[in-house]
Nucleic acid binder design. Structure first.
Length: 637
DNA sequence: ACGCGATGCGCC
DNA sequence: AAAGGGCGCATCGCGT
């Protein structure tokens, strides 16, 4: 028997994602009064804390978006933090939204649904959405929800019936949804780990990440100056309008005057059948075709540069700078007054997390962007990332499924698999590889591209494009040779792709894969998605477990050096942690140990390393710095 | 005025 | 037989 809980609070606002509690409602069972049904405790009820505490102490609780309510409880009653983490540790905190995502993942209907006419539509996972889909009823969205703070001081007996009912009804439907989901609980084995990770991520959002006004100002001035440099000419040439927006059709027309013809990705797909025909068109036919299908001519950065046309080159530069200005810089500016509080999605299709508002997981690499992010006064940032996490998880999957992995064997011997493959490319012994030799360096890059591309089921033509993006210019013939070399080098690959092929759902073109070492299924996905999910998901599982253990020590273990420190960001294979400068070395050491130990529980036959770096502002360029005694020091740039 | 799909591009 | 994936976000252009 479980209890569904829901909180009503003051409104969240920038800077506070865990606002003051107004009341907590329950449905199912109240262990304080040994009562079935549903009810409400107000924040100033002398029994409210006791009730919440008892629930976490002994029972299974159900929430819609558990991390929000847990953070509200933690803010209201810090003394309950240990018991809340205890419930998380023991897998007794449930979340109907995460459950719904796991079930949809298994069914292959994640984030999409079909309406009566068979049209595919985007699907959400709010309590409102799930209630509509599962219970066929529309939750009242905002009659009362946004007004509970007005009743903070009003005794419960004076609340209108509607206000009481609404608060309770969320808990009631949450419980109802939970019970429905229980019928498919064989697909929910991963729930507890995801709820733990989600809580860690949300606590990170609550803390927030500061930006530095001086650095933001400097970046903005530089970008504005660069934009002004090219804008005038582009307006004159008609590629940019007076309001600053781009005229992409004009850009396409200009591209047609050059010799460059790069089709957009969409065109490649749509036209794959008629591609030969397009290649053979004479200029007249081509111009007519492109005029009709103007959007199919790519004016992305690379074609613009290839065209050699000064105006198009300026156009691509303008596009990039403009998106930096209206996108990233806007976010960076708000972070100067109130720390940036992004929202993390705990699970996406592959098992990875997502991040938005802003997305700290895809910040522009342009110099000066990451550098805007700074720790609070007296603190430093410790960034700790895994070395080749996904190669290790791919190898572990092969050890588990086939009892062998040459790639894993190589890494276990301390061999760098990129260099090793590069050595075979240039027919040199591994030990003779000299990365100061440009030829050897280029060969290692090819090896790296091969290792990252082919594990996911990449084909030859796609690999050429992929490798190009990673700085390797190769022909299709070369790519075919490298793929063959890669397949022969790590000969478990043949078993791996055969295994995936065997995961095909009979009578369909879709695949279904069971994640290893956790109970999670990804159903009805494409072949390449299936190739990727196994190792990408495993890496995400390992990193999430590590993050939770860091958070657990930060919030509940006074004996740990991590206690009281805070996480700042998570970028798939990297955590950023904010720590007092005096103890940064010791904290970094424990952070590294926790990250390695937790991740390596998921890759026991191919353990990896995590590398901590201390810095005064976030930077991709930061390097490990040690003093004479080998203690980590901040990188000073 | 706003919604939405397509496109491009950033990150891992 | 062959098949990198998956995110979020800005922008454009079209449709209601």
């Amino acid at each position: 028997m479980t209890t569904a809980l829901d909180t009503e609070t003051f409104l969240i606002y920038p800077g506070n994602l865990a606002p003051d509690l107004v009341c907590v409602s329950w449905a199912g069972y109240d262990s304080l009064n040994d009562e079935q049904g549903s009810g409400l405790y107000k924040h100033d009820d002398e029994y409210a804390k006791r009730f919440v505490s008892l629930e976490f102490e002994h029972r299974h609780t159900v929430f819609a978006n558990a991390p929000f309510d847990l953070a509200v409880f933690m803010a209201k009653w810090p003394e309950l933090i240990p018991v809340i983490f205890k419930a998380l540790d023991e897998g007794r905190v449930h979340d109907v939204q995460t459950r719904e995502k796991l079930l949809d993942l298994a069914r292959g209907t994640f984030r999409f649904e079909e309406d009566e006419d068979g049209n595919v539509k985007a699907k959400g996972y709010s309590l409102f959405d799930i209630t509509r889909r599962r219970l066929g009823k529309m939750l009242d969205k905002d009659t009362y929800r946004l007004n509970y703070h007005d009743r903070y001081d009003v005794p419960l007996k004076d609340w209108p019936e509607g206000a009481r009912h609404y608060a309770i009804s969320d808990a009631v439907v949450t419980l109802e949804i939970f019970e429905q989901q229980e019928k498919l609980k064989q697909y929910l084995g991963n729930e507890a780990a995801q709820v733990r990770a989600h809580t860690m991520l949300h606590l990170m959002s609550c803390h927030g990440f500061k930006t530095d006004p001086a650095a933001v100002k400097q970046l903005k001035e530089r970008v504005v100056r660069d934009i002004d440099e090219v804008k005038g000419d582009l307006i004159e040439a008609g590629l940019v309008r007076k309001d600053g927006s781009r005229d992409t059709k004009a850009a396409v027309r200009r591209m047609m005057d050059t010799s460059v013809r790069v089709w957009t990705d969409a065109a490649e797909k749509i036209l794959s059948g008629t591609h030969d025909k397009i290649e053979q068109m004479n200029p007249q036919e081509l111009a007519e075709y492109a005029d009709e299908k103007g959007k199919y001519i790519s004016v992305a950065e690379e074609p613009c540069i290839m065209s050699g046309d000064k105006t198009l080159i300026a156009y691509s530069r303008y596009s990039k700078l403009q998106s930096l200005l209206t996108g990233s810089i806007k976010d960076l500016e708000t972070g100067c007054t109130i720390p940036i509080q992004p929202r993390y999605e705990v699970i996406q299709a592959t098992g990875r997390t997502g991040c938005s508002g802003p997305n700290l997981q895809n910040l522009r690499r342009a110099p000066g962007v990451r550098e805007c992010f700074v720790p609070r006064d007296g603190k430093v940032i410790i960034a700790c990332d895994y070395q080749a996490a996904e190669l290790h998880t791919w190898a572990q999957v092969c050890y588990d499924l086939f009892g062998k992995s040459k790639l894993g064997d190589a890494m276990n011997k301390g061999i760098d698999p990129h260099t090793w493959l590069g050595a075979r490319v240039v027919k040199t012994d591994y030990v003779d590889m000299d990365l100061d030799n440009p030829l050897h360096k280029a060969a290692r890059n090819v090896g790296k591209a091969a290792n990252f591309g082919f594990i996911g089921g990449c084909g030859v033509p796609r690999f050429v494009a992929l490798a190009h993006g990673w700085g390797c210019d190769i022909t299709e013939q070369e790519a075919a040779l490298y793929k063959d070399l890669w397949m022969r080098s790590w000969d478990e690959a043949e078993d791996y792709f055969k295994f995936i092929r065997d995961c095909q759902i009979k009578g369909t073109k879709f695949f279904a894969v069971d994640q290893l070492r956790v109970q999670r299924v990804r159903g009805r996905c494409t072949y390449t998605s299936a190739c990727n999910s196994l190792f990408q998901g495993l890496a995400a599982d390992g990193a999430k477990a590590a993050g939770y253990e860091i958070a657990r020590r930060q919030y509940t273990q006074p004996d740990s050096i991590l206690y009281g420190t805070r996480l700042l960001a998570f970028v798939h294979d990297e955590y950023l942690l904010e720590a007092p400068e005096e103890r940064a070395h010791e904290i970094a050491m424990e952070m590294q140990t926790v990250m390695e130990d937790e991740f390596n529980r998921f890759v026991p036959d191919c353990p990896t390393h995590a590398e901590p770096t201390i810095m005064r502002r976030w930077s991709k360029k930061a390097k490990q710095v040690r003093d004479d005694e080998g203690r980590l020091m901040p990188w000073e740039g």
